[in-house]
Design a binder for these strands. Structure first.
Length: 197
DNA sequence: TATTTGATTCTT
DNA sequence: AGAATCAAATAT
């Protein structure tokens, strides 16, 4: 369905790789949602990696349950869960089958507007548990696209993950990645200093 | 069955 | 600093 060769739906093999690598490389790609025939596309600004049984911050670290079962499956599948009774979070499952891991999508830019936070993102893109276990590689309801935009060295900030203080030493892992661009640092607040970067 | 908690966001 | 709000996990 995508005729423009510069718009490539990310295939399953893209996600069958080490999770931190997938997370890092998803920055600058697009999350695309089809809603009633309309297309909503967001440039991915921030993600976090959750890796395996040992990662105390990863939901699957407590074992294979009804909720975490999807993380044990093939990559390129959506893991959507309800958090704090109010918000949904979207993840894409990574790595090989039986290795539970996923990347949380934390922020996107839609039509120049920064949607910051996984709960807000899901609200803006109408993502809820109805999309749990959805295949993200078919280009039907929701998928990822490479639109050929290349990042410069230093464009991606590397940080500790957020909201997982309970995870002990795992909370210190630098598994959060965030795109740094002047355009995204609060509209109108901070002016660009100097000229071309 | 009861209690606690949480990959958040918004208000005070 | 605290509320909102509920499913999953843990304790009983």
């Amino acid at each position: 369905m995508i005729s423009n060769p510069k718009r490539q739906i990310l295939p399953r093999i893209y996600f069958n790789r080490p999770t931190v690598q997938v997370a890092r490389s998803l920055i600058g790609k697009y999350l695309v949602r089809a809603i009633d025939g309309r297309i909503l596309a967001g440039k991915i600004i921030e993600v976090e990696a959750y890796v395996g049984l040992e990662d105390k911050a990863c939901h699957a670290s407590k074992g294979r349950t009804q909720r975490t079962d999807v993380m044990f499956g093939p990559g390129g599948v959506a893991y959507v869960y309800l958090i704090y009774g109010m918000y949904h979070c979207l993840n894409v499952v990574t790595e090989r089958e039986k290795f539970p891991a996923a990347v949380l999508i934390r922020a996107v830019e839609i039509n120049g507007e920064l949607i910051d936070g996984p709960g807000r993102l899901c609200r803006a893109m109408q993502i809820d548990r109805g999309l749990n276990r959805a295949d993200l590689t078919t280009g039907e309801l929701i998928w990822f696209e490479d639109r050929g935009e290349l990042l410069k060295r230093g464009d991606v900030g590397i940080h500790p993950r957020i909201g997982i203080d309970y995870a002990g030493e795992w909370a210190q892992k630098l598994w959060r990645f965030r795109l740094r661009t002047m355009a995204l640092t609060r509209a109108g607040h901070r002016k660009k200093q100097g000229g071309a970067g």
